[in-house]
């Protein structure tokens, strides 16, 4: 068994990944297929190493957007893993998840959802209900439901994910802001604008506090400045353009893709309410931090 040695399998895996990342699929695919043949000859089809190699080949196909072929391989790998590792093994959950992702990429959300749910059940069973990997699975499930317009379920899954991230990783973990953003998007789709607004403000306040310390009269997150600017616009009508920048430049320095998205989203909400100056303040800030 040339490939029985896990180090050899790993080397081959790295080689395949390297070729695939360079777009050299014409090398990566035959390499995988040859390895599969070797493995099957020495270990038989139902061997965990065969399943791993099938997963590697599936990844190469995924990167070529050949989702159907990739899904076929993952189904095969799934059967092997269930047989050899047991139905509740983390490797089974991971394969189910990736299969769900492939179906999702083909728009088959209905088929993907039960796979994702099974992956969730396994992870909860093996890792406990509050493990960050459970939260990640909840995120995928939420997204699949979102694509089917099942917003109540989406809301429930994101809330649970958020609870896990906040309690296990802390309020400043990037996953918290990301999930709040996703939850806010779900609120918007349901017309729950106030709830979305609250979440966006929480994200911006938290990002600000992490960078500049607690909020007080001299240290305010950008959205407070935006609202103050909006409220004082009538008073300023005689005094010319707004010049009192105070310390709010600070808020613009909080830079991350999530914060940037949040600035734009809250800006759009302000605009919807006719709060144009507040919207502009956030939009300016978003374009600067890009």
């Amino acid at each position: 068994g040339r490939l029985r040695d896990p180090a050899r399998l790993r080397t081959l895996h790295n080689l395949v990944i390297q070729y695939a990342s360079q777009g050299r699929y014409e090398v990566a695919v035959p390499l995988c297929k040859q390895a599969l043949e070797d493995l099957e000859k020495t270990s038989g089809h139902d061997h965990p190493d065969v399943a791993t190699m099938l997963n590697i080949l599936a990844l190469v196909y995924r990167d070529q957007n050949k989702y159907k072929e990739a899904a076929h391989l993952l189904n095969d790998a799934l059967a092997i893993r269930e047989k050899t590792l047991g139905k509740d093994h983390p490797a089974v959950a991971a394969t189910l998840n990736n299969l769900a992702v492939l179906y999702g990429k083909r728009g088959k959300y209905k088929e993907a959802e039960p796979l994702c749910k099974r992956a969730l059940e396994i992870r909860e069973k093996v890792l406990g209900k509050f493990h960050p990997d459970v939260a990640k699975q909840l995120n995928n499930l939420a997204l699949l439901c979102q694509n089917q317009g099942k917003y109540e379920e989406v809301e429930y899954y994101y809330r649970r994910a958020l609870e896990i991230y906040e309690s296990k990783l802390g309020a400043d973990d990037p996953n918290v802001a990301k999930t709040k953003n996703n939850l806010a998007t779900c609120y918007l789709k349901q017309g729950k604008f106030k709830d979305a607004e609250t979440l966006y403000k929480e994200i911006l306040t938290r990002a600000h506090e992490k960078e500049f310390g607690s909020v007080n009269n001299d240290n305010k997150p950008i959205w407070m400045h935006a609202e103050e600017r909006e409220e004082s616009k009538d008073k300023r009508r005689d005094a010319g353009p707004y010049v009192e920048y105070g310390s709010w430049y600070k808020a613009c320095k909080v830079d991350s893709p999530t914060v940037n998205t949040t600035l734009k989203s809250l800006g759009a909400l302000y605009r919807r309410q006719g709060k144009l100056e507040a919207a502009e303040t956030l939009e300016e800030c978003a374009s600067k931090s890009r």
Binding site: T52, R62, P90, A91, N98, V101, T185, P257, A268
Partner: peptide, 20 residues
Amino acid sequence: DQQGASRQQQLEWDDSTLTY
């Protein structure tokens, strides 16, 4: 803007399938 937000959301692949 909302489109921008949802475009960020993508189903996440689990790379651990390659290490078992």
